[in-house]
Design a protein around this nucleic acid. Structure first.
Lengths: 353, 353
DNA sequence: CCGGGAGCAGTAAACCTTTACCGAAAATGT
DNA sequence: ACATTTTCGGTAAAGGTTTACTGCTCCCGG
């Protein structure tokens, strides 16, 4: 069932079979036809390991994410795979579960399996580990982590734009007490989101209240815990932004459980705009960052590294607000705002209930 | 950076290096130490493709699922990977998106990359495709599909138990009009769930109303569409079971949007008990099937095939009801039932408001 | 009719590892 | 001290493919 069998059946040499399979144009169409027939006849599939071994090209792209059970990542993985396959690659998925030890084993797998390039979207990689990749000239793309090293691109996410939109949206509704539930703060992306939030508050002239900034962990349980922490305080913010949608869902759940209305008592904004956000009740206002743009940019960056010695490039991914039901006027200000507002069309839908 | 470099540095032959790496006991500890030091020094990683090529063992297990964006599957994948890694394997994920054409390419990848075994949890595989695997003696495990062929195990899921519990639960609450939103009916699992539902209705003496059985597609959008279809009818069932949680979430969303209370007006039961089910508002009553049991059984079945010529085995996976807030008394019967009931403790929580 | 070149198929080396087999050295027994 | 066994490291083949190089065939011009 190897290439020799095909060669025998087609009465050609294995070299011709190989050339046929790889669409090398110097092969005589008549022979090619014979070869393809033999391949079909035998149901022959080339052995990927042997090909990779001799050609030095594994046609494998690595993707290291935080955790596969956070729906954001499957949505990203799907896009990444799609683009990879379009370009003749397959993907190798690694998930760190936020654990540096697991990152180590992810890197190890990427190297062992000879990934030609690796995209990383979780926390940053420590120098000695990083070297395992760079020493082997494996190109890297980081999403939202910025180790200033040659040979790796960085995909910047413009968190600021989307988050500012979110804060402005809340401010326009009349919110002045806005909380924020962060992700794990050793994640650069979590840091950036928090920073963007603070900056946006300043821009809108809203004071930053550190007691309303809670460190979470990008899980629903973390969101519930954060909500609990917020509820323990004597006054509760009228709006809460979250570093991702999972947190927001946890917060939403916990608040509802505690008898608070969303958005009546508290407005909530998530981040990522996972598919599920739309299905929550109330549906979740969230800040979207395009998964497909991200995936496309990541693969594209890896490809430029692989194909030429093109210079390290930076891509920027946009974010923008998607308004749904989980944001509304804070209690008591609704009527006043209604009257004051001159731009009716811009008003978000009135709070449900 | 290959095995020769290590051999040179450690002043041994490549054979000794190889034996050291593979923990062959005949290697002298003193030499082994030298070798390990050299490996560490050089940061050497064995080349997986070369190993696989010569040993004939790729240490790769395939897993073909329906779609990666349905949270059930990431949860399954996580378990599968964990067990696979425990056993020294890595996994290769394929997703069909319910498309036979994609199944074809999944199989192709599995063969090309020399997966040692493949677990399939989506629809069944057509005979000619199946042959591509069986001809190469690649063991298969099907979850809930039953092609009676040697060399492959089947993991049966006892849908009946969990679904009967669900129907009994609804019946005990006083529901007599129960709808069902199916999955895509060419999926054997969707068929089985529907069959189990009908059987359970019979057992509980509840009539089957075909107009309340809607074909869905295991997505949230499908759930919304199904709900819409149900709402168009002149009388709406007081409870709806769904073939998976994504459907249930869609149904729940659509019903709420239409002003119906869950569970006040309609009770909902999902299937799979994805993590998110707990977070819905109201939280979703669902039927659980253990992902980790499933993963463990799948890997275990593949291993028995790989290691010995052990006979084809059948595993059965249990399902059971998890009661949450989305099921309650149908309107009007609550008080009557309250009075009649002798087992207060068993009563589910009163419908939220 | 012959020489030269184009076109194209075949041979063999190479990729990196595992492993069967061989042989040397050490250990054991007498 | 010698013979026999045990231990264990080294050599080389093998695994399936790609690809550089070789060389055959055929065609064309002179």
């Amino acid at each position: 069932m190897d290439i020799h069998a095909v060669a025998r059946l087609a009465h050609v040499s294995i070299a011709t079979v190989s050339r046929t399979i790889n669409h090398i144009p110097t092969v005589n169409p008549k022979m090619a036809k014979r070869v393809w027939e033999a391949i079909r006849e035998l149901d022959y599939f080339p052995n990927t390991q042997a090909r990779a071994l001799v050609s030095g090209r594994s046609r494998l792209l690595g993707l290291i994410v935080s955790e596969i059970t956070n729906p954001f990542f499957p949505e990203l993985i799907q896009g990444f795979e799609e683009v990879a396959v379009e370009n003749g690659y397959e993907i190798l998925i690694g998930s760190t579960n936020y654990d540096p030890e697991r990152m180590k084993s992810c890197i190890r797998r990427m190297v062992e399996r000879n990934a030609e390039g690796v995209a990383v979207m979780t926390f940053g990689i420590e120098q000695p580990l990083l070297d395992q990749l760079t020493d082997r000239n494996i190109p890297l793309v980081f999403v939202d982590v910025a180790p200033n090293k040659p040979g790796m691109s960085v995909l910047c996410v413009d968190y600021h734009h989307g988050i500012r939109q979110g804060v402005q949206h809340l401010a326009a509704l009349g919110h002045r007490n806005i909380g924020f539930v962060t992700g794990p703060l050793r994640l650069h992306s979590a840091q950036s989101r928090l920073a963007a939030f603070k900056k946006a508050l300043l821009e809108c002239g809203i004071p930053v209240n550190d007691r309303f900034i809670i460190e979470g962990d990008h899980t629903m349980e973390g969101g519930m815990a954060a909500a609990e922490q917020i509820l323990e305080q004597k006054n509760v913010p009228t709006a809460i932004m979250c570093s991702n949608d999972m947190l927001a869902i946890g917060v939403l759940h916990k608040l509802s459980r505690s008898g608070l209305q969303v958005p009546g008592d508290v407005s909530i904004i998530g981040f990522d705009d996972i598919h599920m956000a739309e299905m929550m009740i109330p549906s979740l206002t969230s800040i979207q960052m395009s998964r497909s743009d991200l995936a496309r940019a990541a693969v594209s960056a890896l490809r430029t590294h692989l194909e030429g010695s093109s210079p390290r490039r930076e891509f920027t991914i946009d974010t923008h607000l998607v308004v749904r039901e989980s944001t509304g006027f804070p209690r008591g200000t609704m009527n006043r705002l209604r009257k004051l507002s001159t731009r009716r069309a811009d008003l978000p839908a009135a709070p449900r209930q």
